[in-house]
Amino acid sequence: MATEIEFGAQSDTGCVRENNEDSYRVAPEMSLFVLSDGMGGLESGEVASRITVDTVLEHCREAEANPSLPFAGENIQGICGASNRLASAIRLANEVVYRAAQQGAGQRGMGATVVAVRFADERMSVAHVGDSRIYRLRGGELEQLTQDHSFVAEQVRRGKMTAEEAGSSTMQNVLVRALGIDAAVEVDVSEELVIEGDTILLCSDGLTRELSDAQIAAVLGECANAQEAAGRLVDLAKQAGGGDNVTVIVLRHAAKPVGAFARIGKWFKNSA
């Protein structure tokens, strides 16, 4: 069935911070959506997140024009070319932020998280580094598709901390993986099937620090369109305190209206 991605996005400084260090880019022509949360003093967090999203888009765009463009790093087994290209783009973004951090005097600690998704037919490539997240709402169930590269999340995975302890820990903001910190970075990549009605959420931790999974699921389930859901999520996070920058991209996989004849034709094709 012909499908299209409906998207909405919103970013806000929040109620406490002075700068918005989050960046996002939507490239519907490539079905590519990227979000990054920057860190570091002065304006370096903003610079890091902007470099990240721009580099990811740039690399994917360049690969569209030139499929033999080399990949940064080793290709991962068991995923398709588009997923490996996304990983390559993130490794390249790491290199660019890393160089910027090395070159800009006094900008150590400059870094960024990244979450990115790209759709190709019914396959979605999912890639991330850091503690920004990707969720999927399917059949009313909210599922986190990424695992935070944070100290507390690792402790929980190892069974050394409960989810409740993690939620109140003062170590919540400590990342174990981010872009721009080392010359090389390991990128987590997975692939997901996309079916009609799936809603995908990319968000910075400014959202998930303020809202529970249940609140997020309710907004995604209730809102009529993706942009409304994005705006509503940001508003709720601000009402809950807005302690950090908050950025969301909401994607909805909706079926294109298909005429009765096209549908029958499709049927025959499928059952042949």
Binding site: L42, E43, R50, T55, V96, Q103, G104
Partner: peptide
């Protein structure tokens, strides 16, 4: 050459 931090630091 090292760019200034507030410049756009893209390769």
């Amino acid at each position: 050459a090292a760019p200034k931090i507030n410049e756009t630091v893209m390769l």
